[in-house]
């Protein structure tokens, strides 16, 4: 079983991305679930969503505390007091939306870092909408836990028509350009 925490801010689509991940897993006959941590909903406030993927049914229905992967939608989250390296130990992966290099000290907590300018890619293809499809593309590229084809299928099913096409394009682009650095 792989456990993932999505770190985002209200309006960035982290919760939706976690649901698409479950849809993508379904196409691969895998089991998965996504559980958002809900507070009072506000735009801009930190948002967490927890996900698990497995080849067998998942019994647990609790939050994730020791993730195998952190998916970070906003590299300014540490300034809001969010520590996305919390619970990380050993062979863990970071997927992060950032235009700039990641602080080596933070990156060193992870065995692999997939960095992508998901906001830029999304802006070019879709305009000012959440970069969540691109983040799933980067997740697929960095972890191999889900294929990009399944991600694209999930996006197109969720959004029939042009929006699905464009989101799929953003995911594909992010998948192609994500810079993955592996320390081990």
């Amino acid at each position: 079983m792989k456990e993932i925490i999505f770190y985002g801010r209200g309006g960035q689509g982290a919760v939706t991305a976690s649901k698409w991940l479950v849809s993508a897993a379904v196409f691969e006959q895998k089991y998965a679930h996504a559980l958002p941590a809900f507070g009072q909903e506000r735009q801009g406030a930190p948002v967490y969503a927890y996900a698990r993927i497995d080849v067998q049914p998942i019994a647990t229905k609790s939050f994730v505390y020791k993730p195998d992967c952190a998916v970070v939608f906003d590299n300014h989250l540490p300034a809001l007091g969010v520590d996305y390296s919390a619970g990380i130990k050993g062979d863990k992966i970071l997927v992060i939306n950032s235009q700039t290099e990641i602080d080596p000290q933070i990156a060193s907590a992870f065995s692999a870092v997939g960095r992508v300018d998901a906001t830029g890619i999304t802006g070019d293809i879709l305009g000012r909408v959440p970069a969540n499809a691109a983040m799933l593309g980067a997740l697929a590229a960095t972890t191999n836990w889900i294929s990009i084809d399944s991600v694209i299928l999930a996006l197109k099913r969720s959004m029939p028509g042009r929006m699905g096409e464009l989101n799929a394009k953003a995911a594909q682009e992010a998948f192609s350009v994500t810079a993955v650095t592996r320390s081990k």
Partner: peptide, 12 residues
């Protein structure tokens, strides 16, 4: 239906 733990969890 447990609030959030079931109402808001996405599963196949």
């Amino acid at each position: 239906i447990d609030g959030f733990f079931l109402s808001h969890i996405t599963e196949p």
